[in-house]
């Protein structure tokens, strides 16, 4: 895959979850993985670091994934950034709201590397 040089930002308040997502991304050969524990922290990372893909949880304290999405989509520099929302089966219904705010795609927990790869193929520009 040609993704390996992309900078990915993983946003989740649960550090174990970040680690799991990071491991799966590593399986897919991603090398440059950044982490943030909520939307606010993610914005901090975004302000100092070029990011090519965001994989964000929905429900986080301080600032939710949806609010992060809104921020990204309303920011001129960031608005085209591929944004993958991570959600749980029971909360899938919320995705409609995220779709209205132009989320690139969503993925339901728990997922495997194969599913993530499939989703990424849909939202990352072909190289």
């Amino acid at each position: 895959m040609a993704y390996k040089n992309l900078n990915v930002l993983v946003v989740d308040d649960f550090s174990t979850m970040r680690r799991i997502v990071r491991n799966i991304l590593r399986e897919l050969d991603f090398k440059n993985i950044f982490e943030a524990e909520n939307g606010k922290a993610a914005i901090d990372v975004l302000s100092g670091q070029k990011i090519d893909l965001i994989v964000s949880d929905w429900n986080m304290p301080e600032m939710t994934g949806l609010d992060l999405l809104k921020y990204v989509r309303s920011n001129d520099q960031l608005k085209g950034l591929p944004f993958l929302m991570v959600t749980a089966e029971a909360q899938k219904g919320n995705i409609i709201e995220a779709v209205k705010f132009k989320v690139s795609n969503y993925i339901v927990k728990p997922f495997t590397a194969a599913i993530l790869a499939e989703k990424l193929a849909k939202i990352l520009p072909a190289e």
Partner: peptide, 15 residues
């Protein structure tokens, strides 16, 4: 062919 993302949590993709 490929695990559907909507697979239920308890029987779906686990490591």
């Amino acid at each position: 062919a490929s695990m559907p993302p909507s697979a239920p949590a308890d029987q779906g993709a686990v490591l």
